[in-house]
């Protein structure tokens, strides 16, 4: 896979990062700053919709995401940005899929453009990236600043769904992703392999069928534990919330955002 290596990105936080995952944002921004990667937050942005509609006639559901992409397009034209970075995998997933649909179906882009009455049309091609891709693409910078050793950590990586499916927008091989494991291994962090790293956590069933989430997460977590993990690392605020239904403070296994884990490696000042 050809990783990205530019050092200046626009940043699209999305609703959840600003309301429910402030510590994830804080650690991620700190980490990128230490790596010499500059971010500029979008001045205005819209909810992406979290899950895109799968219907072929549901063009309305692309409006929010497309408006955000147009905001990014304006700034990219003026500045030297290499793409639009997201921390939330659901934002990543939706924006990538809107790009994909509109690139493959010019009629939909036409209908959307007519409908939205934005000051400019979306010209396609805003490069949406997830923080994991940027970290993996700049591993040398990470190695340079990684002064600490985490010898006591045995890390199970949990990817969840939205960075890997649908496969057209996956950040790595959707059946056997290794991008985060490779990143951690090159920083001398011990990895634990287990079979459920791309299994769904139960997602929004947390609102209506909590038992489904608990069952799913128990399966994922117990497998990681059996293989000797003491950290399970995630990149999605909803996966994190769902994992914490089972993984509690003081347990043998801790749930930790990837950014937080990496900040431990580089020291937090």
């Amino acid at each position: 896979m050809n990783y990205l290596s530019s050092l200046k990105y626009l940043y699209y936080p999305g609703c959840t990062i600003k309301r429910d995952a402030l510590e994830y944002e804080e650690k991620s921004l700190l980490l990128l700053r230490k790596m010499g990667i500059e971010l500029k937050e979008l001045e205005s942005w819209y909810c992406c919709g979290a899950l895109p509609s799968l219907a072929i006639d549901d063009i309305m559901s692309y409006v929010g995401g497309t408006r955000t992409l147009i905001e990014a397009q304006k700034l990219i034209r003026r500045g030297d940005f290499n793409g639009l970075l997201t921390l939330c995998p659901m934002c990543y997933n939706v924006l990538k899929r809107i790009n994909l649909v509109l690139e493959n179906d010019p009629d939909k882009l036409e209908i959307l453009t007519e409908y939205m009455e934005e000051e400019e049309r979306y010209g396609l091609g805003v490069n949406v990236v997830h923080i994991v891709e940027v970290l993996a693409g700049n591993i040398d910078r990470l190695k340079e600043i990684a002064t600490e050793k985490l010898t006591e950590f045995k890390v199970a990586v949990y990817y969840g769904c939205t960075l890997l499916r649908p496969k057209e927008i996956a950040i790595d091989d959707p059946e056997n992703p290794e991008i985060i494991e490779n990143l951690l291994t090159s920083l001398e962090v011990a990895i634990v392999d287990y079979p459920f790293k791309t299994e769904c956590c139960g997602s929004y069933h947390i609102l209506t069928n909590r038992n489904i989430v608990v069952d799913r997460v128990k399966r994922i977590v117990s497998s990681a534990l059996r293989r000797g993990a003491n950290i399970i690392t995630v990149v999605c605020p909803l996966c994190m919330y769902n994992l914490k239904q089972v993984v509690k403070e003081g347990n043998k296994l801790r749930a930790m955002y990837l950014s937080e884990l990496l900040v431990h490696l580089v020291g937090d000042r």
Partner: peptide, 20 residues
């Protein structure tokens, strides 16, 4: 009617609303 609607991450609420 959802009891935990203000506790869960916003993406869960938006996703549920979109699908149901």
């Amino acid at each position: 009617t959802l009891e935990n609607i203000d506790k869960v991450p916003t993406i869960a609420v938006v996703a549920l609303a979109r699908k149901t």
